[in-house]
Nucleic acid binder design. Structure first.
Lengths: 135, 135
DNA sequence: CCTTGAAGCTCTAGTGGCTAGAGATTGTAG
DNA sequence: CTACAATCTCTAGCCACTAGAGCTTCAAGG
């Protein structure tokens, strides 16, 4: 079984230019080519690309995915390192959530305190100007 | 009062190249220059740059900040549009939080179910390969 | 076998919000 | 007047793609 880049795209939901990009950054191996230099892929690449897509959907960056792929090929190895990467990523997400929740609270607070009057007396603008609520 | 770009940077906490960048994208007006073509800023720019910095810290993108700056200059105007921009931004943040919370849950779930054995039987790797938990 | 048109190819440039560096010039304190 | 920090412009790099130009190849129908 040997499929074109378009067919690979259809089967994985990854766009054609993105597949070529992944090849360029080394997430996908250099594929076989036809005589006319068109790429031809096999089942392994479908699985690998699906793996990449799911990892991207879960927010992993390319460097992490490269490592996860390498690890996933060493079937006998302990999965401690995999867990460590994922754990690090979860902590990363936690920090981002915290930050966003704090931002949201500050924005909502300035909205709540807005008297719906003119710009001159607008709480929101004031907060932006001073960086905090002056009471 | 007329200060250099370095002094402006010190007073606002915005780095020198970033100030030049903001000028380039039209967040800061073209400043006065010395005979030797070095930039000189006044109090207005300090205030404006502080405004920009706070807005960036609150996660607004440059396009939004441009609009907020324009609005903030029209002191008589109703602040409805300002509120609308901020409200949109809050909703944006809400969506990002939701997504991150969902991601976090999925990652944590796969970690919890990991038997700490080999890669071969690793839950985390399986989830990435299939895109969901096969029971 | 030949034509046609979709799909493929490579290469470059753009996105956002900066950051880093090269290499030249200017400001200012001693 | 000298020394040197600061500033100048310009280009390129970051991440993970995306878009487009201009060309070639593949596959199906006649």
């Amino acid at each position: 079984m040997s499929i074109s880049i378009g067919e690979l795209a259809r089967r994985t939901g990854v766009k054609v230019p993105t597949i070529r990009y992944y090849e360029g950054v080394g997430l996908l191996p250099t594929p076989a080519r036809t005589e006319g230099r068109q790429r031809r892929f096999g089942v392994d690449e479908v699985a690998r690309l699906n793996f990449i897509r799911h990892a991207r959907e879960l927010g992993f960056e390319v460097a992490d995915i490269r490592e996860l792929l390498t690890l996933s090929e060493q079937r006998e190895r302990s999965c401690a390192e995999v867990d460590a990467i994922v754990h690090r990523h979860v902590e990363n997400i936690d920090r981002r959530i915290e930050k966003l929740v704090a931002l949201r609270a500050e924005l909502q607070r300035s909205l709540d305190r807005c008297a719906r009057g003119t710009i001159e007396e607008c709480r929101v603008i004031k907060v932006l100007g001073y960086g905090y609520d002056r009471v």
